[in-house]
Nucleic acid binder design. Sequence first.
DNA 1: GGATTTTCTGTGAACGTGCACACATCGTTG
DNA 2: CAACGATGTGTGCACGTTCACAGAAAATCC
Lengths: 336, 336
Amino acid sequence: MTPSARRRSTVHDVARVAGVSRGTVSRVLNGGYVSDAAREAIEDAIRAVGYVPNTAARNLVRQRTQAVAFIVHEPHAVFLEDPNIGAIMLGTNQALSEADYQMVCLVVDSVRDTERVARYLNGGFVDGAVIVSARAQDPITTAVARLRLPVAYVGHPPDVDAAWVGVDNRGAARDVTTRLLQTGRTRVGMIAAALDRDSGTDRLAGFTDALGDRFDSDLVEEVPLYSYADGAGAMARLLARAPDLDGVFAASDAVAAGALWALREAGRRVPEDVGIVGFDNSSWATRTSPQLSTVDQPAEGLGAAAAASVLAQLQGDESGPDGIILDTPVVWRDSA
Amino acid sequence: MTPSARRRSTVHDVARVAGVSRGTVSRVLNGGYVSDAAREAIEDAIRAVGYVPNTAARNLVRQRTQAVAFIVHEPHAVFLEDPNIGAIMLGTNQALSEADYQMVCLVVDSVRDTERVARYLNGGFVDGAVIVSARAQDPITTAVARLRLPVAYVGHPPDVDAAWVGVDNRGAARDVTTRLLQTGRTRVGMIAAALDRDSGTDRLAGFTDALGDRFDSDLVEEVPLYSYADGAGAMARLLARAPDLDGVFAASDAVAAGALWALREAGRRVPEDVGIVGFDNSSWATRTSPQLSTVDQPAEGLGAAAAASVLAQLQGDESGPDGIILDTPVVWRDSA
DNA sequence: GGATTTTCTGTGAACGTGCACACATCGTTG
DNA sequence: CAACGATGTGTGCACGTTCACAGAAAATCC
């Protein structure tokens, strides 16, 4: 009953107890010819000594870890607010899980983190990576490229050529804006956000497409983040500048929720006075009143597709397409 | 210019190029006596061959990984909705980052995940773990205990004795309910949630404490999750059962936000007709109108404290207290 | 009944690193 | 000048596993 067991037990211990050699123990674990008698003795011995394989040693010789990194590189506030990231992560986790891979999520929140994560990737802890919202000149991107680590980006790829999955932000933005116009709105504005990223610029471009020659730059307000607070502030400024506004396309549901609050503060009724549409179909969309009309961005699907791409590369399948675009149906609810 | 480099370069390559032995290369990396000439030659060689230490090999011999797991075990919906988890995670990440440890987040979303994560921990990928919302009979808890892995739980500890950090849920619930009563409310109810967990039961106990002999079990509605949807449903049922209700303590801000929606649907004004308080002081609290009075749960602080505890254990410091309780000031806003 | 295949097992060599040890060279000291 | 400490370097072993190989025993075939 002495619970000593200072040292972890190894294959050697199992072999000694079972009265066989290391090789045979390895074979019962990894497959190969082994007699029933030996197998039974070894399985008993494994239980007896409480043996668990040391994965570091296994990885060292196998040159793979059965783990894939999920790297998220977002400013503090967005990470906490944006339910999309969590959904993408769960999608990735589930897809990897089914292939018996371990997802390892790494958060980059400072320059220090960036360098440490790059080191981590270099260190051979993972076989591949799914990267959300990468920056182009990132040490992480560099490390990934140099190591030729199988990778899939969620969102537009940076300069390096690599697999990626995304949605047609521009087309979806055009569609949803068009439907807003078709309901009779004549003064339609936009709250554009995150213009330092392709998703931000593409959504703005889609809005511009839809308006055509009716486009009025006075009706566009730009903010840095896909956040509730930025949405609320932008809406207030937009109303001050264009009181006759009767429609708004918000670059994300969080932004739309903030805008909704600002509209109510200003005494406007939604959708009677002003129609508003969002983007993402995140949990925000059904939590506001009225509920948001929005673009359904299949966040979990994005995560799963990225994982599938990495897994395919790990299988040595180079044939897959570089870019995968998922569908984004418009969900029509009450806000417009 | 041939970008071949099929194989990763090792210390041997560096040593060969620099014209020294492996040992000397190891010394310039890990410290020790080495001449200026040799150091310079080796540093040049490292750059020339693009050498990066193989961490798996290093871990194998050093028996540590400089990484700590952050394990989150939550049902799908809560994970996406609850900003607390993200905040705890960022707190942990920051504290570990400062000590040059890599945080590795593992998500448990299915039984399959549970077993794989237990294997991962067994495999020696990490030196310790911070665990959020563990279940008592969990294979993960078992694995952690058997491995004697340095660990800190966020929230009440399970049966095993181990370090943990948390808040005084009962005391805070009592405080916030008391202040609700002091503003003249006479029919105060509660939406209790997550009674399968200590945080859930403790908050209910605090509420009961505060009411004393004024407690009326008709005014308590129980729901499974700390979620917006559960809050909205519970509020509707509570109103149907007790139309004269004039105060509500919701077990979390998300629940309170849902309840707020249901109150508005029912035509009640907040705080005039009904006062409501939440718990967490998460981003929900400032996003509703009116903004929520609530208990400030220092989520990032919890994550940081848990990380600090694990780091202390890694330093061999066994003296730290088993349980750490952080302060939870009441934040008074407009909803009550 | 010998040749061949199938089944089973043990041994040695990796994987890439860190560390203890031995050894060599210097300058200093008594 | 012998003895010593400080500085610099190379070699062997260990970490715990997998895998290739060789060889033994059993089963199958012509």
